[in-house]
């Protein structure tokens, strides 16, 4: 049995080593080197790329990324909770309702982001409609700001909040709710004091699963923020293209990667058994 299994795992190992773990190691090596005169990466070895992470110039972008990802995560959980509760109690229509949440998620991310550009831009649908109704005299600047990016992130990653909350709520014993009602709790009281504390694992999972892609977002701030609302992902891309500072871009990537892994590790340690 062993030999066949080893043979079967070989190609996957090759791809993982050559095109995932290997590249990550190259980035690690680059992050300790210096930028060459024509771009590229040269010696001497240095820690300067990491100390630059604390430069206020970049600190602003890092801080903004955290605030925006945090806002989007909070938004996703608040929006997703009632929906997850509704789906968990909807009997035979469960899978249809869940698929309707997932369907836009699996279709093109680029198209979904473009749909919001179409709605929000100066000549977009919302502004055109408001102008036609005479509610505004000039187009509102809806696109290319932090709010547009947050809306885009919520729209993009809402399913990541719905799924863990749903599977948590689905497993709750329905009689808990009835017991609370029998003891005189109003529905909202039962939700607040009984359901919410019991969905803490689902909330944590939803929080981590939404926060990670939001923190590393590139396309959403790029298209909906229009360069005015840069996040870490855009800074990384910038270092590898126009700024041609690969060592600093590598250090930034690794800092982001470290946060991603720390969050996942914390989640798996806390709730691993319930999630896997």
């Amino acid at each position: 049995m062993k030999r066949l299994r080893a043979l079967f795992l070989l190609p996957a190992w090759a791809f993982t080593l050559l095109l995932f773990l290997g590249p990550m190691l190259i980035i690690v090596a680059y992050s300790f080197q210096s930028k060459g005169i024509y771009g590229g990466v040269v010696e001497p070895w240095t820690l300067e790329n990491y100390t630059r992470l604390f430069d206020p110039l970049y600190g602003v972008i890092l801080l903004r990324s955290f605030v925006m990802a945090g806002a989007a995560t909070a938004g996703c959980i608040v929006l997703a909770f009632p929906l997850a509760l509704y789906i968990a109690r909807s009997g035979t229509r469960k899978s249809l309702l869940l698929n309707l949440v997932m369907l836009p998620f699996w279709t093109s991310f680029l198209v979904r982001t473009y749909a919001w550009m179409f709605l929000l831009r100066d000549t977009g649908l919302l502004n055109s409609a408001l102008l036609a109704l005479g509610l505004i005299a000039e187009p509102l600047p809806l696109l290319y700001n932090d709010w547009a990016v947050i809306v885009g992130l919520i729209y993009g990653y809402l399913p990541f909040a719905v799924l863990p909350l749903y599977s948590n709520l689905e497993r709750l014993d329905k009689s808990l709710f009835e017991a609370a009602a029998d003891l005189g709790a109003k529905p909202w009281e039962a939700i607040l004091h009984v359901i919410l504390p019991l969905t803490a694992p689902g909330m944590r999972a939803a929080g981590v699963l939404v926060f990670i892609p939001c923190l590393g977002a590139y396309l959403t701030p790029d298209l909906l923020g229009g360069g005015k609302s840069m996040m870490i992902g855009n800074l990384v891309q910038n270092q590898f293209t126009s700024a041609r500072d690969w060592p600093f871009g590598s250090a930034l990537s690794l800092a982001l990667m470290a946060i991603v892994m720390l969050l996942l590790w914390a989640l798996l340690r806390r709730d691993g058994e319930e999630l896997l």
């Binding site: 095109l19 590249p23 990550m24 980035i27 590898f240 690969w246 990537s253």
Partner: peptide
């Protein structure tokens, strides 16, 4: 779960 931009630049470097 690796952000796409990181996968992308790591592959570019490779």
């Amino acid at each position: 779960v690796t952000p796409e931009i990181i996968t992308g630049i790591a592959l570019l470097a490779t």
